[in-house]
Amino acid sequence: MAEEVSSQMNSLSISETNPSSSATISLVSGDDIVFKVEPTIAKEMETVQSFIDETDGKITTIPLPNISSHDLPYVIEYCEKSIAGKITKEFEAEFVKKLNNEEVKELFLAANYLNIKKLLDFLSQVIADRIANKSVEYVRRYFGIENDFTPEEEAKLREELAWTFTGVDPDDEDEN
């Protein structure tokens, strides 16, 4: 495993100039970009930390094949704020403003994979806010899911939905 990774790194030819590099952790994104982070950052990522612990700290280069170099900086930024104790409502609001739907979903999966509970909780709330009180069609579109119900099943679901959403607004229909 270790050889594999270091050869991969050589092929990337990303130069090492940081003198305190022995202390840093290298995170390798799915598209083979290396991100140097402080060990304290790695601690925020339970999956990474347990990998380091399992190898007694000998391995400091961690491949993260499921996370792209586009998403990883966001994750690192959030973890940096977290260890600095600077996760505020304002920061989170700014953070989420930068993200489109696709990025929110990808970061949610990344947070789950890396086991960063705070980020996962935060993004769960972001996704929940974006699908709250939306139609089934909207939710399908949001997640890129195809409707796989048969027309018969759909008819039953439509009825169920009608029961769910009438009576919420008392002006919907006249009371007998």
């Binding site: 709330q125 009180n133 939306k134 139609s135 796989d148 169920e160």
Partner: peptide
């Protein structure tokens, strides 16, 4: 993971989510 998101939503949206697909 799905339940983590749905636990933050009202019961009507949970019912809506159950109509998204078989999965």
């Amino acid at each position: 993971l799905l339940m983590q998101i749905l636990s933050l939503l009202d019961d009507q949206t949970v019912i809506t989510a159950s109509h998204v697909c078989h999965g």
